[in-house]
Design a binder for these strands. Structure first.
Lengths: 209, 209
DNA sequence: CGTTCAGTTGAAGGCATTCAACGTCGGTGG
DNA sequence: CCACCGACGTTGAATGCCTTCAACTGAACG
């Protein structure tokens, strides 16, 4: 019923329209959910981190692409026994429903970003989200080294921008002393307050993580 | 346990952050789900039509605004007995989970629109969605009169545009002979094929509704 | 040392926005 | 009845933000 699958960075996990007879949970690594138009324009609609879930009971098709951006390990379950397990375990069904609702809220938050935020605000929001997620993962590591899990192109596709704009906005945050990069991927937040301010969101009383 | 509530067009139903001790189903009318930034920029993240659902078990707060755009009737259920009912009725829980997943898919589709589509494609996609939904409602009414349920401003907020751009793009579709308006709100689609083409989506073999 | 790929930077251009004026419709009151 | 008003919508001109196009940098690799 249960088995593991491994993917190397850059490898596609599922293509839009594939049907797929198991469900899975991310054990390790980061993957992207993306949709593409016929002419190649791509929009990432979600990121999958550890313990995120792929596939849902009753949905055999998936209408977006899933792609590994780092090496990824999935824990897979055959569909029939898993659905049987859900039927007999209400708490599991509840948990899945909870996760779906969380994703829905995240998707709607991102709609606000895509529809109404400026490039600067998009980048700030993206970085701030990374801080929050990576902070949760490395529990209480006080201001750890942070890293961008995505290439500039993937960031662009996640934020509805171009690579060039992403690059310029990141440079701008460097110049303002808000971010500091040790290389292309690894950075530290020097001024969390300014970063939060730049997201365009409610200020929440200036609480610092 | 069950009661009805009525709202007139334009009336707010719920504000961002309100907590709300019942759940509801839309009986009649259209409502919008919206999120707003501090400076007033607004993004609609969903439309509620008949039989759509507001609120979820275990979520007492709602983090967006809900607003009636036409006169709206809600069928409301007190939270505690409703949650008890769900626990004892797996099929109802399944149905709610299904609806949440449908909304998630719709939200992601909309993310593609917001992040990657041009103004022209956004309008075309919006109109095409209206055709599909209103077609379902008035079962098999062959090419009925269609109507925009939203003002130009609401359309703009739904598509991540300004009113002026919405107006210009609609005019453009009129001039091309793809849409024909009898007044500001009511129209017919004169060339469905061209409309679908203009959405930027996959052509689906040119199937006409 | 040349190649390649990811990222950066510069300059030009375009699409949507912004600002502004006008048009239209429905309601209200003189 | 008609003038006035406000809300909604349209249209025009100018600006600007992001994109597009292009050249360059730097690191990894054979």
């Amino acid at each position: 019923m249960k088995f593991y699958k491994n993917y190397v960075a850059g490898e596609p996990i599922l293509w839009q329209g594939d049907n797929f007879d198991y469900v899975a949970s991310v054990v390790q690594g980061v993957a992207t959910l993306g949709k593409t138009l016929e002419d190649g324009r791509t929009q990432l609609v979600g990121l999958l981190f550890g313990s995120d879930f792929i596939g849902r009971p009753g949905r055999e098709k998936i209408d977006f692409d899933i792609c590994a951006v780092t090496d990824v390990t999935l824990c897979c379950f055959r569909r029939e026994p898993f659905e049987a397990l859900i039927s007999s375990t209400p708490s599991l069904a509840d948990r899945l429903a909870e996760m779906a609702l969380d994703e829905l809220n995240a998707a709607r938050e991102w709609m606000l970003l895509l529809g109404r935020k400026t490039a600067q605000e998009k980048i700030a929001t993206f970085i701030e989200m990374l801080v929050r997620r990576q902070h949760n993962e490395s529990l209480h590591g006080m201001k750890p080294k942070l890293s961008l899990p995505l290439t500039r192109e993937e960031i662009a596709n996640y934020l509805g921008l171009t690579i060039e704009t992403v690059s310029r906005q990141i440079t701008s945050f460097k110049n303002k002393g808000i971010l500091e990069f040790s290389d292309r991927r690894n950075f530290k937040v020097k001024d969390m307050k300014a970063l939060k301010l730049a997201t365009g969101d409610d200020t929440e009383g200036g609480v610092i993580i």
